[in-house]
């Protein structure tokens, strides 16, 4: 009786692990398989528009505001030590190392990730994916792969834009409003920011986050229960899971990159 149950549990576990492995392999095959440039490029460009260009406004606005807040908060603390000349590095390093990649990833999960999950879930619910398969067109290659790559390309670009706009926002508040010397804002920034250590590491973080968010968003959509509740649930799960995963990966990456 007990043995029976243990046996069944084992079988189910093995089966689901095998299923997971198969799904991952299939996704990897579709996403990393040799692309068809003639057909794939227009699809990729379309998705770059949907995923990247349409996320630009929210990234610009939040980047600007976060930079301005950093300028204000940084100034009020630094000025007590007479160190307001260090405002530049404070704003730049916070954005480059952490806020740029992380906030972009969180906004991206909320804006583009949830939309992708809902879109793919809906395509599944309306049998569009099934019908594509019956037309001998692999939905993983036709639907999933271009979206995946568009996200992986867009997110680092958005993070770079976010960071640059944020640094300008810090300048706006710190220099133009609160009167920090413009020369020292930039020069102390240049003295303390390193291209490899700070700029490239930030971009690497963003690329990792992009893989994580896109894999979660697309998997949740593809795996959604094809009903309205199922899609609603999958959409929420995308935002929650992707956000938590981004924060967890951020800790690991920070420890690896800057912890030494």
């Amino acid at each position: 009786m007990l043995l029976d149950r243990v046996q069944r549990l084992g079988a189910t576990t093995l089966q689901s692990i095998a299923g997971l492995g198969k799904a991952a392999l299939m996704l990897a095959g579709a996403v990393f398989g040799k692309p068809n440039v003639r057909k794939g490029l227009p699809l990729l460009i379309k998705q770059l528009y949907v995923v990247g260009v349409l996320s630009l406004l929210i990234i610009l606005v939040s980047g600007l505001f976060i930079g301005m807040v950093l300028g204000l908060q940084g100034y009020t603390v630094l000025v007590k030590f007479g160190a307001e000349g260090m405002l530049g590095p404070l704003v730049a390093l916070s954005l480059l190392r952490e806020l740029g990649p992380v906030v972009t990833a969180l906004l991206f999960a909320g804006r583009a990730g949830s939309a992708l999950t809902a879109e793919i879930g809906l395509m599944k619910a309306t049998e569009q994916l099934s019908s594509m398969e019956m037309m001998a067109v692999d939905p993983l290659r036709r639907i999933i792969a271009p979206r995946f790559w568009a996200g992986v390309i867009s997110m680092p670009l958005l993070a770079i834009i976010f960071t640059a706009v944020g640094i300008l926002g810090g300048h706006l508040v710190g220099v133009d409003w609160l009167g920090v010397d413009a020369g020292s804002y930039w020069s102390s920034m240049q003295a303390n920011v390193d291209l490899h250590q700070d700029v490239f590491n930030g971009i690497i973080k963003s690329i990792v986050f992009a893989f994580v968010v896109m894999a979660i968003a697309l998997h949740k959509g593809f795996d959604a229960v094809p009903t309205s509740e199922g899609i609603a649930k999958a959409t929420t799960e995308t935002v929650v899971t992707a956000s938590l995963a981004v924060l967890a990966f951020d800790f690991v990456l920070t420890a690896l990159m800057f912890g030494g």
Partner: peptide, 27 residues
Amino acid sequence: MSMLFQSGALFSELSVFDNVAFPIREH
């Protein structure tokens, strides 16, 4: 072989023309 799904399952982001052209363009 081909299958006509209950809901039709037209691709919602393509026009009627592009829907019909889809399998031809793919294959």
